[in-house]
């Protein structure tokens, strides 16, 4: 694994950061991409320049890529397949009033 992939600073350059932006009326932060920066402050500055140039956001999160724990492909079936046939987990057995938003 190269230094860049691991998100650790190395001779190749600055560590990798993942960028999350909350849209103007979005409810939560959405992953929009990644970038390189030397530290957290610089990552926020870069994220502002790279990912909010077209008026997309009102809030930015950045996090070092190495700090994200991710599930792997090998775990795909044990993790996700069992939910496929469990329709009772979906809240579809009662009526949602029309005036309840965000469901």
């Amino acid at each position: 694994m190269s230094a860049e992939q691991s998100g650790k600073p190395g001779k190749q350059g600055w560590p990798l950061y993942e960028v999350f932006v909350r849209g103007k009326r979005g409810l939560n932060h959405v992953h929009v991409g990644s970038l390189h920066a030397a530290d957290d402050a610089m990552a926020l500055t870069h994220a502002r320049d790279l990912y909010t140039r077209r008026n997309e956001g009102v809030s930015i999160w950045v996090v070092r890529s190495e700090h994200i724990a991710a599930s792997t492909r090998d775990e795909k079936d044990p993790f996700f397949a069992p939910s496929a046939d469990k329709v009772y987990r979906h809240p579809t057995f009662y009526d949602i009033p029309d005036d309840v938003p965000h469901i």
């Binding site: 932006v21 849209g23 103007k24 009326r25 979005g26 409810l27 959405v30 929009v32 997309e56 965000h102």
Partner: peptide, 13 residues
């Protein structure tokens, strides 16, 4: 919210 594309979500409104 539309989740089809992150930027569609961001541009909502």
């Amino acid at each position: 919210m539309s989740d089809d594309h992150v930027y569609l979500t961001l541009a909502e409104g």
